[in-house]
Computed example of a mutant assay.
Amino acid sequence: MDSQTAADKNGIINKVSTDLQDFWSNLSDKQQSILKKIWSILTYKWQWQIILNAPFLVIWILDQTIPAVHSFNMQLIFSLPIPLVIKTYLGFS
């Protein structure tokens, strides 16, 4: 297995960056305008996806790092009126 050093990785990143800049500079103004519009639509949708998923990410991070949050979550699950069969199926028994 080939392992790349940090210098090799930086070289690859710099090469890709310069290739992308060259590609961008070779596009016409109309093509650049179209790509900017497409990029703005994509990033707008990504922003909404991040905003909608952020609370779940925060809860997951807290659950992984603070044991009290995990025990609270387990107490909350056990206090819900979920049939024992379903809890067992989900692995909470």
Rank of each mutant, 00 (worst) to 15 (best):
M1L: 08
M1C: 01
M1H: 08
S3L: 15
T5P: 03
T5K: 05
A6N: 15
A6T: 11
A7I: 05
A7K: 03
D8V: 02
D8N: 07
D8G: 01
K9D: 09
K9C: 00
N10W: 13
N10D: 15
G11N: 09
G11F: 00
I12K: 12
I13D: 06
I13Y: 07
I13W: 03
N14K: 09
K15L: 10
K15C: 02
T18R: 10
D19L: 07
D19Y: 10
L20W: 01
L20H: 04
L20N: 05
Q21R: 12
Q21K: 07
D22H: 02
D22Q: 06
F23N: 03
W24A: 15
W24Y: 06
W24I: 03
S25H: 04
S25W: 02
S25E: 06
N26H: 10
L27V: 04
L27Y: 00
L27S: 01
L27Q: 11
S28C: 00
D29W: 00
K30Q: 15
K30A: 13
Q32V: 00
Q32Y: 08
Q32A: 00
Q32L: 00
S33F: 06
S33H: 07
I34E: 14
I34A: 11
L35K: 11
L35C: 02
I38P: 06
I38H: 09
S40V: 02
S40A: 12
I41T: 14
I41L: 10
L42R: 09
T43D: 03
K45V: 09
W46H: 14
W48A: 05
W48M: 07
I50A: 02
I51R: 15
L52R: 14
L52N: 13
L52D: 05
L52C: 07
L52T: 09
L52I: 10
N53P: 01
N53V: 03
A54Y: 09
P55W: 04
P55Y: 03
F56A: 09
L57C: 08
L57A: 15
L57T: 10
V58A: 03
V58D: 00
I59W: 08
I59Q: 02
W60T: 10
W60G: 06
L62S: 06
D63M: 10
D63T: 07
D63L: 07
D63I: 05
Q64L: 05
Q64T: 05
P67W: 03
P67N: 07
P67A: 06
P67G: 04
P67L: 01
P67D: 06
A68W: 15
V69N: 09
S71I: 11
S71V: 11
N73K: 14
M74I: 06
Q75G: 15
L76F: 11
L76Y: 06
L76N: 09
I77W: 04
F78G: 11
F78I: 03
F78H: 13
F78D: 15
F78R: 14
S79A: 14
I82F: 08
P83K: 09
V85K: 15
I86M: 03
I86G: 02
I86D: 01
T88S: 10
T88Q: 13
L90Y: 12
L90A: 07
G91L: 04
G91C: 04
G91D: 02
G91T: 00
F92I: 11
F92R: 15
F92S: 11
F92A: 12
S93F: 12
